[in-house]
Amino acid sequence: MSGEEPTGGDTAGGDAVLRAIRTRRVVRALADAPVEPGQLRAVLDSARYAPHAGNRRLHRYVAVTRPGMLRAIRMVSPGMLQRPAAAIVVCVDWAGVRAYGFPESNPGPYVDVGTAAATMLMAAHGLGLGAGPVTSFSRAAVAVLLGAPDGVRPELIVCLGHPSPQQPPPVRRRGGPAWTDQVRWEHF
């Protein structure tokens, strides 16, 4: 029974949060329409509700909406397949990390980048926006483009926009383990 899920109440029925989690997708094709400032603020504001190690708030967020800046960032971001109308660059204040006494090897700041990104992706989905994370980019080039202070490094970009009616087919991984093969209950 190690690979089986415990039985319990039916949570799949009408739970809006679980439905949102199940329906959120990375949107790779975005329309040219701008993201409304209120929508961008709402997505950005959602990051503050994400868990942060020790509630230290060692991250900085840069919202980008100027088309020229978005094009420049896209030029140094091979992983940015979409053409976003807006982007939020999640940065880590590594000087602040060191000031708290965390070693460079501490994974906490990276985990916090992930929780902030996941929260912003869900917020965008809830607002009807398309969104997708980008990790393949030149951190040094984006830092220069944004004028990041010393010790602050971009770690992830959240692309935002209105989903285009035509989307490329989803990326499906072939082979590999099934989800049920990856989950165990209580022990391996």
Score class of each variant (00 low, 15 high):
73 I>A: 05
27 V>G: 00
93 D>L: 04
67 P>Q: 08
65 T>C: 03
103 P>V: 13
17 V>D: 03
15 D>H: 12
112 D>M: 00
13 G>E: 14
47 A>S: 08
28 R>I: 02
56 R>M: 11
69 M>A: 07
70 L>V: 06
46 S>D: 02
11 T>F: 13
107 P>H: 09
21 I>Y: 05
86 A>S: 06
95 A>G: 09
95 A>L: 10
59 H>D: 14
32 D>I: 05
62 V>I: 12
81 L>T: 13
38 G>S: 10
69 M>E: 10
90 V>N: 10
81 L>Y: 13
38 G>E: 15
63 A>S: 09
39 Q>A: 09
23 T>C: 03
96 G>Q: 04
47 A>N: 01
108 G>T: 14
55 N>A: 08
17 V>W: 11
28 R>C: 01
76 V>N: 01
102 F>E: 14
99 A>T: 13
58 L>S: 02
30 L>P: 00
43 V>G: 06
92 V>H: 00
101 G>M: 04
86 A>K: 01
79 G>E: 11
108 G>P: 05
112 D>I: 00
89 V>I: 10
74 R>M: 05
76 V>A: 05
81 L>D: 11
92 V>N: 01
25 R>W: 08
21 I>L: 08
93 D>G: 00
58 L>C: 07
16 A>G: 06
83 R>M: 10
64 V>C: 01
18 L>Y: 01
26 V>R: 11
101 G>V: 07
63 A>W: 03
98 R>E: 10
62 V>Q: 08
59 H>E: 15
48 R>L: 09
12 A>K: 14
24 R>V: 12
99 A>S: 07
34 P>H: 04
23 T>E: 11
69 M>V: 12
34 P>G: 03
98 R>Y: 06
18 L>N: 03
84 P>I: 10
55 N>P: 04
115 T>I: 04
20 A>P: 04
49 Y>H: 12
94 W>S: 05
96 G>A: 01
105 S>R: 13
101 G>I: 13
67 P>T: 11
48 R>Q: 12
57 R>D: 15
101 G>H: 01
113 V>H: 00
54 G>N: 11
110 Y>R: 10
60 R>C: 07
112 D>C: 04
31 A>E: 03
86 A>Y: 10
57 R>L: 12
13 G>T: 15
74 R>L: 02
49 Y>D: 05
59 H>R: 14
66 R>T: 14
15 D>G: 03
85 A>I: 04
93 D>P: 00
112 D>F: 08
111 V>T: 10
92 V>S: 01
88 I>K: 04
60 R>I: 04
103 P>I: 02
57 R>W: 15
13 G>C: 09
25 R>L: 06
101 G>F: 02
95 A>M: 07
91 C>I: 02
